Amino acid sequence: MIHSNKSVKFSDIIPYKLCIHDREVNGDPIKIREQKDLDTTKLVDYVIDCLKTLNRTLTPDKLDDLSTVIGEILINAEEHSTTKHRFSIGYFHEINENGQHYGVFRLAILNFGKTIYEKFKDPDCPNKEVVLKMKSLSEQYTKKKFFVFKGFEEETLWTLYALQDGVTSVAPSRYKKRGNGSIQFIESFFNIKGNKKDADDFSTLAILSGNTSIVFDGSYNITNGFVDGEPYKFMTFNQSGNIEDKPDSKFVKFVDHYFPGTIISARIMFNEDDLTQEI
């Protein structure tokens, strides 16, 4: 449909058309960040306009969380892409059933090129310190016999580690304050989703990079801890909250089909706890 420039209209679906950003058009780092802000605003405004079909708008807290989710995913896609393009596409589904009127926002943001694992595995990866930590962790997993062929491999571990607070593949001297973007959009997604026991039980966030799939549905949350006396946040997918312990294979796993890059997709339900009456 995209390649043929054709579309099918549905009364309960509002599409967000494919957005392609070419960083070579505005190659200046400041221009790239400005474009990210423009694209974030465009997507957030789109959601706000869609919610008008429910005669609702986002609460200030949820608006801030949505902006963080979209903005941090976009900047991550920008910074870690090894090709010049970033893509985003989605749709809003208005649902009116069983006396409930709510909306579901589907979004996918992706890039092509090296996977998350390949970026860190590259001998020219600028962040040598993080790579050394990943290698050390791999040695621990090997000794514990945690690696399973086509079940949980080094790629799976390094991709999970890349989501932790303070981890980035870019040179620390280039982005001294980067490395916490992934944990920020994960945390903001959980804020939108709310408590696992709430009616909103099907909002999910998923990352597919290479042969690694990581799915967030609220079964495991972010753990707060300290590293060398500094506060850090961790997403480990296990009960111990320790990255040195193997994650739950239901949510972090090796998959057969290889994706040549990274795609982050979200399914977000907007219900009463996220919305307020439109003024």
Rank of each mutant, 00 (worst) to 15 (best):
Y46H: 15
L205Q: 05
M235E: 10
L208C: 04
N224C: 10
I13M: 07
I183W: 01
S173T: 06
I264F: 07
Y46M: 07
I116W: 04
T59G: 00
I214Q: 08
V130F: 02
Y232R: 15
S138K: 05
T115L: 10
V252I: 15
S219M: 13
S203E: 01
D165E: 04
A162F: 04
D198I: 02
R86G: 12
G99I: 10
D217S: 13
T156D: 13
F105I: 12
L58P: 03
S67H: 13
P231Y: 08
D245Y: 12
V148H: 02
Y161H: 03
P123R: 08
S188G: 02
L137Q: 06
Y102I: 05
V47L: 04
I48A: 05
G218R: 07
D45V: 07
A266C: 14
G218F: 05
T53M: 00
T156Q: 01
G166C: 02
F10C: 05
R267W: 06
I70W: 07
P126K: 07
F216C: 13
Q35C: 11
L38I: 15
S81T: 13
E78L: 14
L107E: 09
S81P: 02
K128S: 04
E78P: 01
N127C: 06
C125D: 03
E24Q: 14
I70S: 05
A108M: 13
K177L: 09
L18Q: 11
H85C: 08
I214N: 06
Y91L: 11
E24D: 14
K177V: 01
H257T: 15
L160D: 07
F146V: 03
L208V: 12
K143N: 01
F10M: 10
G225N: 12
R33Q: 14
I32T: 10
M134I: 10
N5P: 03
V44R: 03
E154Y: 00
D61T: 10
C125E: 08
S136C: 03
D12A: 09
K150V: 02
K36E: 11
L74N: 06
H21G: 07
F226A: 08
L66Y: 05
Y91N: 10
Q35W: 06
L18V: 13
D248S: 15
N224E: 14
H80R: 08
D228H: 12
T223W: 04
